[in-house]
Amino acid sequence: MKHLLDFQGWSKGSLENVLETAKVMSDVLDRPVKKVPALQGFTICNVFFENSTRTRLSFELAARRMSADVLTFTSATSSTTKGESLQDTISTLEQMRVDCFIVRHGASGAAHSVNKFTKAKVVNAGDGRRAHPTQALLDAFTLQQRFGSLEGLEIAIVGDVRHSRVARSNAELLPKLGAKVRLCAPATLLPRELEADGVTLTTNLKEAVSGAHAVMALRLQLERMNTGYLPSLEEYRATYQVNSKTMKHARENALIMHPGPMNRDLEIEGDLADHNKSVILEQVRNGVPVRMAVLYHLLVGKS
């Protein structure tokens, strides 16, 4: 593949291959020497127009673990406010013989634009509210590690679905791998149009969580209160917080997930995040092997 912008054009088989490779990479990271020469001589460039230390570090480490050279271009403000277009930025960086761009941007479609501007491979590290495919892959990997397969799993995703690229990417990926997704949010944050094969919507938290194999809470941006999407934090907490009471409706061994960073005791009960059913730190850990697998497939994969 030329890119991972979203899961369009990625077959179930190829996605399973990536997850299989991620398993191999995960084993590598358990060794005392956590480095392989797979991408030696390749140059990977992080291009981040949005602050995201965690995702950037995860990608950086993934590239370094495979012996690639890593460049990082960050710009908190968009390049246009400096007068340089995204195309100019990418063309400039491409001259430094970059093999793969990893792009984070505040606007939907920016990773697609980068892909048009360059012959290099492109990985979308989050574009606006649209997609964050490696996050969804690491969520799928985490579920697979625990359940063996995603076939037949029921996953509840709870929170600000409207503004969440994590929710959109999971709603795209998990059904492809055989899981059912239930998106749950207050009506103002739950676009009806996201309903699809394998994706159902509900404003009722209990209904969303009932029988679920995993419950993922999404980060709530505090600015949603000022823009009229929600009446109050108190009401949100009382109605949509994922807590121990919520989890009683889920399956007994249901996992607790969160893409981070968490607002403890807002969208997720603080103690629940530390519960032994919580795989939140495992998600972070799995980010590295999954991103290694993605880079490996794009840069040295056969097809």
């Binding site: 968009s78 246009t80 277009s85 995204l86 195309q87 941007h105 505040g106 606007a107 939907s108 479609g109 920016a110 634009s113 606006g128």
Partner: peptide, 10 residues
């Protein structure tokens, strides 16, 4: 052209 080559939000 530069203005129309900005991102969808800008």
């Amino acid at each position: 052209t530069a203005e129309k080559q900005r991102d969808m939000l800008e």
